Computed example of a mutant assay.
Amino acid sequence: MTFPEIKIGQPRPPTWRERLSAYLMLVRLNRPIGIFLLMWPALWALWLAGNGHPPWQIVMIFVIGVVLMRSAGCAINDFADRKVDAHVTRTKERPLAKGTVTPQEAVIIFLALSLTAFVLVLQLNWQTVALSVVALLLTFIYPFMKRFTHVPQLFLGAAFGWAIPMAFMAVNESIPNLAWLLFIATLIWALIYDTQYAMVDREDDVQVGIKSTAILFGQWDRVVIALLQLLFLSLLLGIGLSAGRGAWFIGGLVLALGFAVYQQWLIHHREPNACFQAFLNNNYLGMTVFLGLVFDYALGG
């Protein structure tokens, strides 16, 4: 007895809507938390550099640039992780892991977004343009560091914090020591929230060979995060006082301390979903620091 041959057709090519959706997921516009974590330090720096009144055209360039470079960073990050994301619970649905976006497309999107951001920064002084090249290099390097060091978060912090010296250079054509202290504070903040983020994937990362501070710190992770939180907030306090900030700014830091304590409560049992919520909560922490600056300059004299 024979059976008729069944011809299986080629898979239906994706529609333009499906491709657009995959590209938006690749650059994480559906998850803007990374934009906020990159945006807050840039805004802190702009308000400090502009003494509470930064030029609005420069502010808009930085805001748009942050969105572009964070999106570019996500594209190159997924390119770097394309062989491991399918084996990690949290990342297995990413477009490259599912095959809805090709590695070549991810690289093209990274280059296109980076070039657009570079064209944007050309409107600023040449010193800021030169600094933007460092920002591009840091954005490209960070995703690959997870294979070589247990502290890739330092590279993430440098990439996210490099907007600080750029902001001071764009506004004042100089980078004071206060700017570098703010850069160091942002590095520490990245160690905090990206360790919380890495705690979500710790078991999967061990299996696939990805390195992180969550693995490095081990059972001391919560203690190290707490110490880093205290150091981060202390640095911000010192920076604010050096810049002549007063009660409104300090009030913002008190609220930020409350968020830090809440994050410690969330990560207490190291439950992945709660650790992810602690990571997300850093958006509110960064926002309160910024609002403290805004109100202090506007109302504190």
Rank of each mutant, 00 (worst) to 15 (best):
C74L: 09
T186P: 04
L48C: 10
V59W: 04
T288P: 00
V151I: 14
I175G: 10
G65F: 12
P103A: 09
G50W: 09
L46S: 13
L191G: 10
L38M: 14
F249V: 02
M60Y: 09
P14W: 05
L122V: 08
T116E: 03
G300D: 06
E203L: 11
F144M: 12
F140V: 14
L187E: 13
M60V: 14
S242R: 04
A112E: 11
N282T: 03
S132Y: 14
A298C: 00
I64E: 08
L111Q: 07
L235V: 04
P143V: 03
D81W: 00
G252D: 03
A256H: 00
A158Q: 08
W56M: 15
N125K: 11
R94M: 12
A278H: 03
M60I: 15
F168W: 14
L111C: 15
A97Q: 07
G252E: 05
A106D: 01
V107H: 00
V27Q: 04
Q229C: 09
F183I: 05
V208T: 11
E18K: 02
A190W: 05
A86Y: 06
M39P: 05
V84H: 10
N282S: 06
V223Q: 15
Y284M: 12
P165K: 03
W189T: 07
Q127Y: 14
V224P: 11
L154A: 14
D85I: 01
Y23N: 02
Q57V: 08
R28Q: 02
G300A: 06
L291Y: 02
L111H: 04
D81T: 01
G301V: 08
P152Y: 08
V27W: 02
I64G: 09
W265F: 10
W220Q: 15
R147Y: 11
N283R: 09
F36D: 08
V119Q: 12
L156Q: 07
L38N: 11
L131P: 12
I141T: 12
E105G: 01
Q153C: 07
L29T: 14
T288D: 00
Y297T: 02
V289Y: 01
N172W: 04
I239M: 04
T186W: 06
G218H: 11
S21N: 12
L138F: 14
I184L: 15
L20Y: 10
D81S: 02
C275Q: 01
I35P: 06
L48H: 11
L137Y: 07
Q264N: 13
T116W: 07
Q104T: 12
L191K: 03
L299I: 05
A185K: 04
M25V: 03
V101Y: 02
R147N: 12
R28N: 11
V151P: 00
L299N: 00
I250S: 03
R28L: 00
L253E: 05
E93G: 05
G218E: 14
